[in-house]
Simulated scan of single mutants.
Amino acid sequence: MARVGPHPAVADVRRAVREALADVPADALVLAACSGGADSLALAAALAFTAPRLRLRAGLLTVDHRLQPGSAGRAETVRGLGEEMGLSPAEVLTVTVGTEGGPEAAARAARYAALDAAADRLGAAAVLLGHTRDDQAETVLLGLARGSGPRSLSGMAASTGRYRRPLLHLSRATTVAACRALGLTPWDDPHNADPRYTRVRVRHKVLPMLEAELGPGVAEALARTAALAREDADALDEWAESAYQNCALSDIGDSVKLAVNELEKLPDAVRRRVLRRAGIAAGAPSGALSAAHVLAVDRLVTRWHGQKAVDLPGGLSAIRRYGTLIFAISPIP
């Protein structure tokens, strides 16, 4: 008996995109970020199908990182596929990848900068990213290995600003099956098999080992853990923001002052979020302000014995004076 309707994998991806765009106003522009891999290619095809039915305009962006021979030609092929799907505009964004933070972080920074600029220029309401449940599981494992706390364990958000990730609850196998059913041939990026990259080792060694030793469903369980951790982290962040407003004696320019007696009343998880928030407000770069820095400042509250100032990134110091915790440019007068 012939199947009525699309292949189940195609239907799953289309449904995910439709649900992710439910609140986007009619006639708005939505862009799919597409590398040509199975995940983003299935996403782009689903957007092309779904957008007209939601009375939305849909386009495609593909980033040429210029890290491999032939990258410009592959990017042009992806752009052409977008046009064939009816996605307009369909553009190639050519970037220069730096070195800060390592190759993966540098490429990611260049990619998002280009996507942000293009979305601003085109007036896009949303940019769709093709991260799947498998990507989420890898992100959670990497966060666990770094020991960077519940915010890192919460993985990627389904929605962050203009960026939306409709496929976070779907497996990579689903996107591969969707492409096959639609007659689309994904491009397999050689970097996705290069063991020099930490995420590649997690994908091809760590997760398969966990599945073999613990049984199937590890990726799904990790993604579920991420969702639960995100709920908790969001609640703690909201509490910490309220606590910050209560503790702040002043928050002007590059100087922040907090009342120690109010900080002492807070649970550890909330207080340390307040301290991190204060450090960033005073000018410390968020990416450089580590858990070790925050813990050192925390000891000025919880283990006070007259110690000296704590040095922080960005030329800042934190010091306790007469019941006040001060974050300011060194040296603090």
Rank of each mutant, 00 (worst) to 15 (best):
E241M: 02
R162C: 06
G215P: 02
R273M: 02
A212E: 14
A181C: 08
W239V: 15
R271C: 00
S159T: 11
P267R: 01
Y163C: 04
K205I: 09
Y197S: 04
K257V: 14
L207Y: 06
A181I: 07
M209Q: 13
H169S: 13
G215F: 00
L168M: 04
I252C: 12
G215V: 04
W187K: 01
Y197P: 02
L263I: 01
W239T: 15
A278Q: 00
P195Q: 01
T185I: 09
R172T: 09
A193E: 09
K265L: 12
E264Y: 02
P190Y: 07
A284H: 03
A223T: 06
A259C: 12
G279L: 02
V202K: 08
V218K: 06
L167Q: 04
T198Y: 13
V200I: 01
G253E: 15
A282D: 02
C247R: 03
A281W: 07
S242M: 08
T185K: 11
R172F: 01
R230M: 10
S255N: 09
A240R: 07
T175C: 03
L167S: 03
R180E: 13
D254V: 09
G283Y: 10
S242T: 12
A235S: 11
L207W: 04
G215W: 03
V274G: 10
Y197T: 07
V274L: 10
D254K: 05
L210W: 06
R273V: 04
K205H: 14
L275N: 03
R165Q: 13
C247A: 14
R203C: 05
N246V: 14
R271W: 08
R276C: 12
L210T: 08
A221H: 02
D188L: 11
P267D: 00
E211Y: 04
R276G: 15
G183A: 01
I280P: 09
E213F: 00
A212V: 00
N246T: 15
T225A: 14
G217S: 03
S242E: 15
N192A: 13
R180F: 00
D194Q: 05
P186R: 09
P166F: 01
K205F: 12
R276T: 14
S171E: 14
D232P: 00
A181T: 07
A178G: 00
E264G: 07
V274W: 08
A223Y: 04
L167C: 00
A284F: 08
A269V: 14
K205D: 14
V256Q: 10
E262K: 15
A226T: 00
S242A: 14
S250H: 13
L249R: 12
Y163E: 02
D268F: 13
K205N: 11
L275E: 02
V274E: 11
P195G: 02
K265E: 10
L222R: 02
R277K: 11
A158R: 11
A181E: 08
A219E: 14
R276S: 15
A227H: 10
S171G: 12
R172D: 07
D194M: 04
L214V: 06
N261W: 12
L222D: 04
L207N: 08
D254C: 10
P208Y: 05
G217W: 06
R165G: 01
A229C: 06
T175K: 00
A240M: 03
R196N: 09
P186H: 08
